[in-house]
């Protein structure tokens, strides 16, 4: 499906600075990634809007083995039982197909993704523009190939833009895994399974604001610094791909 994929990776200067560090590490722990990428190289990103006809807006994203569809419905009238609200409501739901994981039905392990998607997006949407109404964001993971949540978040913000929901900025999201001293960006499912720690950032690149940030494992402050810099840079590049995807539709 990805005919001419656009790749993105952090800037050259950052790459060069870390090259020297990495060389040292390579001497200790020599391993290459299964898909032949370098540690700081993201998977080719393929994104298209208009995946579903019934929705107000929708998007499809394919990052290597991770395939996600997001549909946005609304703004439509909030349920009668809801209290009056002078700002709009955002309702997010993430589900996995039963065949998305190697073992059938494993996707139900990720119940927290819906609320995490909500938190990543709510800061970017101008909820004041649609009072009394609700926007529904439904994400479906067709295939889980690692870094699922970042892909869902990026794809959802593209779908929101496609639906014409007013936003301050697109939200793009990237995660890194930590292996000993190595930081590996955009990990695959196999890499995620044996990571020492992970850090995920969702941000609005134009405003340079972080909307969601999670971290697991043991980190020193310097390492967090490095990982955040890496993620933010990749987020910026990813947002450019998303923007060009939207421009393509408009032209």
């Amino acid at each position: 499906m990805a005919t001419n994929p656009a790749t993105y990776s952090p800037s050259q200067s950052l790459e060069r600075r870390q090259q020297q560090q990495r060389r040292k590490i390579f001497l200790q722990a020599d391993w290459t990634r299964t898909d032949g990428r370098s540690f700081h190289q993201c998977r080719p990103a393929f994104m298209r809007t208009g995946a579903s006809n019934a929705a107000s807006g929708s998007a499809y994203a394919e990052f290597g083995g991770t395939k996600v569809i997001v549909s946005v419905f609304g703004p439509r009238e909030s349920k009668k039982a809801m209290m009056y609200s002078d700002t709009g409501r955002l309702n997010c739901n993430v589900s996995y197909t039963t065949f998305s994981t190697p073992t059938r039905g494993q996707g139900s392990d990720h119940k927290e993704y819906s609320s995490m998607l909500h938190k990543a997006l709510e800061g970017a949407i101008i909820l004041e523009t649609f009072p009394k109404t609700t926007v529904d964001v439904f994400a479906l993971v067709l295939e889980s190939g690692g870094s699922d949540l970042p892909v869902i978040i990026s794809c959802a913000s593209l779908a929101l833009a496609d639906a014409g929901i007013m936003m301050y900025d697109l939200v793009s999201s990237v995660s890194v895994s930590c292996f000993g001293n190595n930081l590996v960006i955009d990990p695959t499912a196999e890499e995620e399974a044996c990571q020492d720690g992970s850090l995920m950032i969702a941000c609005m690149p134009a405003r340079y604001e972080v909307t969601q940030l999670t971290l697991t494992g043991e980190w020193s402050t310097a390492k967090i610094n490095e990982a955040m810099e890496l993620c933010l840079d990749a987020c910026l590049k990813l947002a450019n791909i998303m923007r060009s995807c939207l421009k393509e539709i408009a032209s």
Binding site: K119, G123, M204, Y208, V210, L213, L215, T216
Partner: peptide
Amino acid sequence: VNRHGHICGLTKRGGAGLDPSVILDMIS
């Protein structure tokens, strides 16, 4: 944070965005 001053987990709550430098400041 554990006894050695290492960060072992981080969660952001609330919707509003934060500047990355503010987050690093908060961590310290």
